[in-house]
């Protein structure tokens, strides 16, 4: 078997084994994701009653739920890629991983493949149950368009995760906390539950460079409006460009981070 493939497998199966060994926690996260998505769905159902204004409730619920599903998926990817380093920091295994003759690209690729599959499984579970509860179907959706948006959104979020992964690498004390803040900021500016036009103007500038914005808007157009692939191109192209920038940038930043910790001695368990 190809050596590089075996090395990629190392990271994939490490993540898988850790999830299997903490299966009860995985159940907790899925239940949490589900409750979160359903609460958001019910928020949509109650919007007319709360505001006293008649709205297209079904449309609004779907708007919210698509945002919720996408965020379940994208935050799972971001979290899996960025937290892999935090986990290694906690366990003290990072020195052994960094001592092995394995490139950072392979390291991050193995983590990313797992992140995509794991995120998809979580999203499909949440989607299936929510669809049954809120009684909606994807009959009018352009699933191929949604799939294309999902693929390019995944690449961009892997890039973001790689950049975030460097934080716990260079600062064992503050890195994981900063990663969470980074995730929260992306969530806020990307318009999970609202169009980004409601944001203050300065936040809209940040929204324009967030891949989450294009992923969410593109997904909504594909799923709710059934938009064709060509009309989704205004969301797909930015995702491709952001991905092309973020993946090599993430890899580069991670390698710089590795050099820094080897220089300062921060790779050691106690920092």
């Amino acid at each position: 078997m190809n050596k590089k493939w075996i090395q990629t497998k190392a990271f994939f199966f490490r993540e898988l084994d850790m999830r299997k060994r903490s299966w009860s926690w995985q159940l907790v996260w899925i239940i949490y994701d589900l409750m979160w998505a359903m609460s958001v769905g019910f928020l949509g159902l109650g919007a007319a009653a709360v505001s006293g204004v008649e709205i297209n409730t079904q449309q609004y619920v779907l708007f919210l739920l698509v945002g919720s599903f996408m965020w379940t998926y994208l935050s799972s990817i971001f979290g899996t890629v960025s937290w892999a380093v935090t986990w290694e920091r906690w366990e003290g295994t990072i020195e052994y991983t960094f001592m092995a003759p394995v490139s950072r690209t392979i390291h991050l690729l193995g983590n990313s493949i797992f992140a995509i599959i794991y995120g998809l499984i979580r999203m499909v579970i949440v989607f299936t149950i929510s669809a049954a509860v809120f009684n909606f179907t994807l009959t009018g959706a352009n699933l191929m368009g949604a799939g294309i948006v999902l693929i390019f959104a995944s690449i961009s979020f892997i890039g973001l995760g790689m950049i975030a992964a460097v934080l716990p690498l260079i600062s064992p004390e503050m890195g994981d906390k900063t990663t969470l803040i980074m995730e929260a900021v992306i969530m806020m500016v990307s318009g999970i539950f609202y169009p980004i036009t409601v944001l203050p103007v300065w936040m809209q500038y940040i929204a324009k460079i967030s891949p989450g914005t294009y992923a969410l808007e593109g997904m909504r157009m594909a799923v709710i409006d059934g938009a064709s692939v060509s009309s989704l191109s205004s969301f797909i192209w930015p995702l491709i460009i952001i991905g092309i920038i973020l993946i090599p940038l993430g890899n580069f930043v991670f390698i710089l981070g590795e050099k820094y910790v080897k220089q300062t001695g921060k790779l050691k368990r106690d920092g």
């Binding site: 050596k3 590089k4 075996i6 090395q7 497998k9 190392a10 199966f13 490490r14 084994d17 850790m18 060994r21 903490s22 986990w87 366990e91 003290g92 295994t93 020195e95 052994y96 991983t97 001592m99 092995a100 003759p101 394995v102 368990r269």
Partner: peptide, 26 residues
């Protein structure tokens, strides 16, 4: 290298940890 701190993924088994380590070397 074998260090004084036997750092492992503590939730994983010995076999899972050793397979991870050997896969890293292809």
């Amino acid at each position: 290298r074998v260090s004084v701190e036997a750092s492992f993924f503590k939730r994983l088994s010995a076999k899972e940890n050793l397979l991870y380590a050997s896969r890293l070397y292809g």
